[in-house]
Design a protein around this nucleic acid. Structure first.
Lengths: 114, 114
DNA sequence: GCTTTATATAACAATTTGCTTATATACTAG
DNA sequence: CTAGTATATAAGCAAATTGTTATATAAAGC
């Protein structure tokens, strides 16, 4: 279990930039727990499908997620081997499990069949 | 030693927003180590005095720093009792001690007599 | 082949950010 | 009181961000 990674200022701020957006922070929280296909995420968040796709593209560009095509779906999940994984996990670990927005998302997640 | 703080999505993203800027990340790194007056910081960073003042104001608004007036100087230092202190320390702990920008700053810091 | 479904990309608008220069404020020293 | 130094605030601007709608791409089912 790595706890530090000695990130450069550049890498560190790049990662914070990705997570500073509420939608992207919560999206990443979910992706660290299990994989999701885009349409599931679109149903859960109150933004358009292109908005979700654009967020996922940012993660991918930063090496934070894996993308896997299966049939007509694309599944995304957290890349646990990325350089920033410890940072991301520490940040997400600070999020209140009872945070209203997070709880609402989890409730929606259960109801979705995509 | 607290390790988690159960921050809301709002509080968490607000803090990441503050630290995602390279200048502000490094500035905060220094402020967690010792107090600085504004003019020292201005001499160390390659931005104008108002830019530094504006960054410090953001920290203060978020409760991340203390400000103390002594004579004509204002000293700033990290507020170790703020709600986000563990988060901030974890993030800054991920920064490479040998990061080029950080090393350059520390070198400058030694040379400054304000 | 055509249609539907899932997803990505492009183009654009509104907002925010991070600096700049100019100016105001406040303390210090003579 | 005046001049100098330290700092904050205001105004303005260019670049970046985050969403939108419209459109393209690609797989699946008939």
């Amino acid at each position: 279990m790595t706890e530090t990674a000695a990130l450069s200022t550049e890498k560190l701020t790049e990662t914070l930039k990705i997570l500073h957006d509420p939608t992207r922070l919560l999206l990443m929280k979910l992706l660290t727990e299990k994989e999701y296909c885009v349409c599931e995420l679109v149903d859960m968040f109150e933004v358009s499908q292109p908005a979700i796709s654009q967020h996922l593209r940012k993660y991918k560009k930063a090496g934070l997620v894996y993308e896997e095509r299966r049939g007509q779906w694309r599944y995304y999940r957290f890349n646990e081997t990325c350089e920033q994984h410890a940072l991301v996990e520490q940040i997400l670990g600070q999020l209140d499990e009872y945070d209203e927005q997070l709880v609402r998302l989890r409730t929606k997640a259960e109801a979705i069949t995509c």
